[in-house]
Structure formats: structure tokens, C-alpha cells
Design a protein around this nucleic acid. Structure first.
Lengths: 257, 257
DNA sequence: CGAGTTGTAACCAGCGTGTGACCAGGAGGC
DNA sequence: GCCTCCTGGTCACACGCTGGTTACAACTCG
């Protein structure tokens, strides 16, 4: 999977009253997979805050004379919000004023909705670049183990296990396919990137290194299980007798990941 | 931010051949106190890098058919550079294409220089704010170390460590992402502002310089930790055995930041 | 019991990193 | 203008870690 695909959708709001324009725009936004909504009248700033928008498109005309101060307040109060003014004919000095106040872009109506979207995208792009990537990959948790893809690290009981790059890739692959048995050939293929030659013991050796470190960091749990003649399976299983919860199921203490 | 005072001036370059337009623009830019220069022909990307620009204004027409790929390369290589296309008549699809590729704005000639400046300002502002947002004016404290973003300096046990600009930016980035492993490429991208070429050792060297100064100023602590094959992680860890607080944890003296 | 499979430890080559020296360019003092 | 100092950045070399191989022991299963 491409890591760039999992981007959260852009959240956009349009403050305008031109129903025809809004209709066309809505169709395009839906097609692009953006979350969007229409605001009929100047919404209080606090309400805007709670919408957690990425981009706001607004027509100064529908706001009347209060438009400028509204724009100013929005930009001041929500500095991380991208603001695009999309309005009718305007003078250079008006546009300069709007941009100086804090608008990120100014488009003159009539305009093509596709261009508006492209400009909104450009505005949202930079903001996103700063804060994206950070929260992206959700950490995998199993037993005492926590795997954070964004940090290239695994933690046991809060403490960092010092994993090598390959070791990390291996445990990440295993943990991600938790519960199912992965054949050696497939493991090799997906971690090393090319086909395994018969007799290669690399996977076994790295499993051993992993087990060693996991054992040291989380002694009361077993994570990697051997399946003779096939490969390995990841499953967090506690060694502590579960006398409190005596479940006679085949699986002693399966912890979901 | 109320004080717009101590802002470093915007560095802008124009890639165009319209001498009349350039002349008028230059006057306005001088009046605004911006550093600017004119590029007569498509400059190699490496040369652009060394100019340390904030904003680049370019006319796709002067580049000919190679303009699109040039624009694309610039946006890819210098993601933190604001790019404004200022060119003659164009179709909606051309504008959409340019913005999608990575341009921040697209202005149609003829245009008023004041509007161009206002848009350049908006682009620079957005970029700057994104930078500032992650810096967090609040001072970071870890171990004996205190980092004050407002002073561009770091202090250990009250005494100032004499850090250069790059060194400070590096420690600030690391400390702000305390606990996380930052890949070399990302460090380079965010401190130097453009993409790292393979084999560049600048990050290593500056980490070394930082470690040296930190070691001298705060000998009983370790702050920057290497993650082989990945990058670096900031975490204040004391070398003193914590016999006063005999915690039977595996980690000897992990100090959260 | 034997062949094939897996666990384990030692071992080595490659390369990523630490480190010091060196150099170019810019700021500032004279 | 010339000189000096400082900073940023490159280079070369040494070292240590990592990845991967091999050999052997232990184990599984027919």
C-alpha cells in the first residue's frame, strides 16, 4: 500500500449564497472525496473552530460591509486555517488588502470549480506537510509489546527495545499479520524484497535474534511461534497461568492486536 | 503573534524576461525591504538551493516546453520553497496542472506588482507559520538542558551553550520531537530546507558538533542517541546511577522529557 | 531411528557512523 | 580594501554495528 494514500480527507467549508455555483462545486468535491459543507450565513468564530476545517472558502459579498472584519477575525483566530476569498469583481487594492489581512488566496468569480479545488489543495498541501506524517501510522499493540511504525521502534512495558532495522521490519510484518502463519518464503520475500533461495537461514536467525530481545524485554510473554515445516506465526501469549480467567479454549491467552 | 518586528526579510527571486515588469517590481520590492534578485534563464536546481529563497516567481513562458518539468523538479526538491507562477494567458486546465504539481499560486499577466507582492507575502506567511507552528515558542526543558526558541540559544545548568544557527535549529528540531526517532532525510529536509542527496554527511557532522558542546556543558547527561541505519533520537538520559530511587525497572535512568 | 527442519553460537565482510582535519565563503574589524 | 575570525560543509580514515553465512546441536515427525 502506498503510504501517501491514507491521507485524511480535506475538510472544507464554503460560505456563499450562489446556489448554482455551490451545486457544481459540491459535485466536484464529492468526486474528489473531500468532506465539505455549506455555510449560509457568517458563522460565529467559535462555531468555525469546532468544525476543525482545513480550508474555508468565502465570498466577501454575502457578508456585506462586515466582511473585512470577519475575514480578519477568522485569520487571526484560526491561523492554521487556509482561507480563500472567492468573490466577484474586485480592485487590486481590495485583493491586496484581503491577502495582507491573512487570506491565502483570492479568486475572482466567475471561476472554474476545478481551479478553486486546485487552489484549495495547494493551500491545504503546505499546512498538511508540516503536521502530517507525525500522527500517521497507528501503533500496533500486542501483550506488553507496542510497535510504532513512525518511529522504527518497538516498546515493551514502556521501555524501548533496541531493534535493528531488519529486526524491526520483521516483527512489524509478523505483528501486522498477527494470528496467521507466514511461510518462510513469504517472509523473506516481503522483508528482504526478493525471492529466498532454498537453504537460506536468514529468517531463522533473525527470528532468533528477535526472540532473544523480546525475551529480555518482556520475559513473561511469548510472541513468535514456530510452525514446523512452514514458517512463523505472531501471537502474544502470556506465560502467567490465567487462574483468574480459566478459559479452557484452545488458545490460552490470546491478546488481540 | 503581535510583534511583526524581528522577522527576517523575505528572500525572493524572479525568473522572467519582461524587463519593464521586472523594473517596476524591483522598485516595489526595494520599498518593501525584501531581498530579491532576477534570474534571466532557468537556473539549475542546485543553484536555487544555495540561494536560500523563500519565494520563487517564475514565468512558464520563458522556460518553453521544459517549464512544466522544471516546475515539478523545483517543487519536489525544495518543498519548503513558495512557488508562484506568473505568466500570460492560460487555460483552467493549465492552472490546475500547475497548482497540482506544487505551485502555491498562479497569477495571470498582466498583473499589478502590488498584488504579486501581496500574494508572495501570503505564500511566505503560510510557509513561515507552518515552520513556526512546530517550533512552539514555549521553552523545551530536558535534563539539565533548556532550549529557548526566542533567544536562539540553549542553556545547560544555567550557563549558555554557544550554539551556531544550524546547531540550534538541529537541537531544536530534535528536542521538539523528543522520544521520536527522526530519519536523517527528514532532519535534513526540515533543517536545511531541501531534499538530502544520498551520501551527504552534514547531519552526522552537526550531530557530532552538538554532542561535543553538550558534553562539555552537561557532562553527566546524554541527549542525542543514534539509531543505526535510520537517524537520531533526542532523549535526556542521566549517567548517574539513581541509587536514591531504586526502581527495579529494566531501564536504568530514563528521563521523560 | 533417520532424514529433514529448526535453534544456537560463532564468525566475517560490508558499510554506516564517529571523528578530526581541512577548505570556501561571509561577516565584521581595522 | 585587506585581514581575521567564524560558520557551514566536505573529505578521508578508523571503528563498530549489522546483516548474513556457516557449522553444529537439538528437535520433529514419519
Amino acid at each position: 500500500m502506498g503510504s501517501t494514500t491514507a491521507q485524511p480527507p480535506v475538510r472544507l467549508a464554503v460560505l456563499d449564497s450562489d446556489t448554482g455555483f455551490l451545486q457544481v462545486l459540491a459535485n466536484r468535491l464529492d468526486a474528489a472525496g473531500w468532506q465539505h459543507r455549506v455555510l449560509a450565513s457568517p458563522v460565529p468564530i467559535d462555531a468555525l473552530v469546532s468544525m476543525r476545517l482545513n480550508v474555508l472558502v468565502l465570498d466577501l459579498a454575502v457578508l456585506g460591509p462586515a466582511g473585512w472584519s470577519y475575514l480578519e477575525k477568522v485569520c487571526e483566530r484560526l491561523p492554521s486555517l487556509g482561507v480563500i476569498v472567492c468573490t466577484g469583481r474586485s480592485s487590486v487594492s481590495q485583493r491586496v488588502r484581503g491577502l495582507r489581512i491573512g487570506a491565502d488566496d483570492w479568486i475572482t468569480k466567475p471561476c472554474h470549480p476545478e481551479e478553486l479545488i486546485a487552489r484549495a489543495e495547494a493551500v491545504a498541501r503546505r499546512r498538511r506537510r508540516a503536521e502530517a506524517a507525525r500522527v500517521e501510522a497507528a501503533p500496533v499493540v500486542a501483550g506488553e509489546l507496542e510497535i510504532r511504525a513512525d518511529q522504527f521502534q518497538a516498546f515493551a512495558a514502556g521501555a524501548s527495545i533496541d531493534l535493528t532495522r531488519r529486526e524491526f521490519e520483521l516483527i512489524q510484518l509478523l505483528a501486522h499479520a498477527a494470528g496467521q502463519v507466514l511461510p518462510r518464503e513469504e517472509i523473506y520475500q516481503r522483508v528482504w524484497g526478493y525471492a529466498m533461495v532454498h537453504g537460506d537461514r536468514s529468517v531463522d536467525v533473525f527470528v532468533r535474534k528477535l526472540r532473544q530481545k523480546l525475551e529480555r524485554a518482556s520475559p513473561r510473554w511469548r510472541y513468535i511461534h514456530t510452525h514446523f515445516g512452514i514458517g512463523y506465526r505472531f501471537a502474544a501469549e502470556s506465560l502467567d497461568p490465567p487462574e483468574v480467567v480459566p478459559e479452557p479454549v484452545a488458545e490460552p491467552a490470546r491478546v488481540l492486536v
